[in-house]
Design a protein around this nucleic acid. Structure first.
Ligand SMILES: [Mn+2]
Ligand SMILES: [Mn+2]
Ligand SMILES: [Zn+2]
Ligand SMILES: [Zn+2]
Lengths: 157, 157
DNA sequence: AAACTTGTTGACAATGGTTTTCGCTATGGT
DNA sequence: ACCATAGCGAAAACCATTGTCAACAAGTTT
């Protein structure tokens, strides 16, 4: 999957083109729907460092006049995670968050204030290779590495 | 907190003695209750590598004849996390899991099969120091580092 | 030891994110 | 154009977690 995506001429840093989605869906026997496009569009449009919940995405679509049900949001998010287009983040909050998963970028990590909930992103190439090593050692095929650091931020101290 | 715990003569590897709980509770003005003892006891009794949910703990206590309400389980788990005695794990599951947080041990990390949900633990001292560095760099005081690797295990492939 | 103060408990209701249901719709193939 | 069926969405169900509040008990004062 990620190899096909990476070598696709349509693939562009930081966003997922409609063609990529089409290719992935077709090759798994899924259908290409307006809803799936719209949802991925919202994720594409999000600013770097944004983490969107299912409800965030639903609300954004309603705001821009789209009619879409919550079930579709949840179903599609799971699908896009399975296809490797999205990363699902369990940041110890009460809900899950989603962001684009870009195979060409070094996966980034999160520093979270346990008091105010603010999230800082940072990159570290070493982390991913440690995860790869461990996956290999245990006979796992790697899907995602998430390094999450919890602390108290400067303002909250 | 962790410094006091570490230097306490009552502290023992791999488990938390009642005295430690007493000291921590007293110094914050909390009370020492039967329920808090029982809950920590369950965590102490858990096998290495076990991750218990609030309901797991509640059920274990009911099974051994203790009467205890769910609210108390949740309240106490939060308290023990705040006191630094427990680690709360957000493993992308639908619920949270808890394990002893042992300041003298190198914090361990988790390799999870996204298909069957099995969890493998592994240790890596480098990870924690990367987290410490990043926390320092951003002016955070460090609470916990969680490195979680997702993949597909051998049986599930 | 009894009285007192107040943190804590637990039954129960409420919350809120996510999933399920199922009749309807739209996609992709013939 | 027609068909088979994957996908949609409104509503209900689900379920982990939190809130409420009267009764209780831990620790302190007399
Ligand atoms: Mn991020
Ligand atoms: Mn563990
Ligand atoms: Zn903060
Ligand atoms: Zn597996």
């Amino acid at each position: 999957m990620s190899l096909a995506t990476m070598s696709s001429p349509h693939f562009v840093f930081g966003s997922h083109h409609p063609e990529v989605l089409k290719t992935l869906l077709n090759q798994e026997g899924f259908r290409i729907t307006q809803q799936r496009h719209k949802i991925l569009e919202v994720l594409n449009a999000a600013a770097e460092g944004d983490h969107l919940s299912a409800e965030d995405i639903h609300q954004k679509l309603l705001d821009q006049g789209e009619k879409i049900g919550v079930s579709t949001i949840y179903r599609t998010l799971h699908l896009l995670v399975d296809l490797g287009l999205l990363r699902e983040l369990a940041l110890s909050e009460e809900r899950k968050f989603y962001e684009l998963s870009n195979p060409m970028t070094v996966a980034h990590h999160h520093l979270i204030c346990s008091h105010c909930g603010s999230v800082q992103e940072f990159e570290d190439a070493a982390i991913v290779s440690l995860g790869q090593d461990e996956a290999l050692r245990q006979g796992f095929s790697l899907l995602d590495c998430q390094f999450t650091v919890y602390g108290i931020c400067e303002q909250c101290s």
